[in-house]
Design a protein around this nucleic acid. Structure first.
Length: 320
DNA sequence: GGTAGACCTGGACGC
DNA sequence: GCGTCCAGGTCTACC
């Protein structure tokens, strides 16, 4: 007999839209069910792991979330459950904050897009970002699935990952040369050397957060830019080859290399602190034009030939 | 400061 | 079926 918990949402929150807004909703241990329109995954709670199934039964914006768990949980665990669900779905971003984004970029007001899915912890977001670097999307899916299969079904914590040998990660999780960097990252998070509170503190500048992130092993300019948006810092782009493809194929830019990247930066300058969201929803909308609404996607469907690069003559596809 | 090459994996391609 | 090439972001060595 499990528990059933109701969580209130901002008046504009819509699960099918706001959960299926960034590729991580397709990565283990997350499981999106396009039939039930629910998101399931194991969560690490104070008394141990619990599998959560998150739905929005009324299906209208602002209606409550219902979380069904596979075991009973008490008051203390309910608080932690709400905190993790809130982080994943960005329930902390109010309707007014999303409206402020729409004031800057009108294009997304009609659909209400504004929130970007993320993980219940910053550490999981960082690991997912590292596993998406220098690799095609199917490999990112595989690495995250194996990390959950081999180390912890609820996604390995920093402490768990810090205890593993790099060679184990390489051999059993297929992370390749990222092995030692992931273990080193885990040690930094587990020891408290990474000040997560400071990174999440609105009082800390974006520049400071970016510098902190790029000093971490395995985190370069692209990864740091991506983690910035996962921290809710949307004023910076995360430029990778997918950005360049978007610029050429969707925006019609003809430049190459540094000139292309500079033109991309100029295009999104006008969106100020919302740059990343404006950029990302352009990319996401292009994916949806090709593949249908994101809530209909599955990891298997996006595993090969999906995304942007599927339009190229070669290549297995970059991360959505 | 800028650049070249290594890192690793898996998909595409040619034979 | 096998071997080769290529894409992907970060890091290091070198100029």
């Amino acid at each position: 007999m499990g528990s059933r918990v109701t969580i209130a949402t901002p008046e504009d929150f819509l699960l099918v839209r706001d959960a299926c807004s960034y590729g991580y909703f397709l990565l283990a241990p997350n499981e999106w069910d396009p039939i039930d329109r629910t998101l399931s995954r194991p969560l690490r709670l104070p008394e141990g792991r619990a599998r959560a199934r998150i739905g929005q039964p009324e299906g209208r914006a602002g209606s409550g979330l219902v979380v069904e768990l596979d075991r009973r949980i008490g008051r203390r665990e309910r608080g932690e459950l709400a905190r993790q669900v809130s982080r994943m779905l960005r329930l902390d971003e109010s309707a007014a904050e999303i409206a402020a984004f729409h004031d800057v970029d009108e294009r997304w007001r009609a659909t209400g897009r504004g929130r970007l899915f993320r993980s219940p912890t910053l550490f999981e977001d960082v690991v997912k970002t590292v596993t998406s670097c220098n690799v095609a999307w199917p490999s990112t899916i595989r690495m995250n699935a194996r990390l959950c299969e081999v180390l912890d079904a609820a996604f390995p914590s920093a402490a768990q990952l810090a205890r593993r040998r790099a060679t184990t990660l390489r051999a059993r999780c297929g992370v390749g040369y990222r092995d030692a960097r992931l273990v080193e990252l885990a040690k930094l998070f587990a020891s408290g050397a990474v000040d997560e509170g400071r990174l999440e503190d609105p009082g800390a500048s974006d520049e400071e957060a970016f510098e902190t992130l790029t000093a971490l092993p395995g985190i370069g300019p692209y990864a740091a830019g991506n983690i910035m948006q996962l921290l809710g810092r949307y004023g910076r782009l995360a430029i990778d080859t997918e950005t360049e493809r978007h610029a050429r194929e969707e925006l019609g830019f003809r430049e190459e290399g540094a000139a292309l990247r500079a033109k991309v930066e100029r295009r999104y300058e006008r969106f100020g602190p919302h740059r990343f969201r404006s950029y990302w929803f352009e990319v996401w909308s292009a994916y949806e034009r090709r593949r249908g609404p994101a809530w209909t996607w599955t990891p298997r469907g996006t595993g090969s030939g999906f995304t942007a690069s599927s339009t190229r003559s070669r290549g297995p596809g970059r991360a959505p």
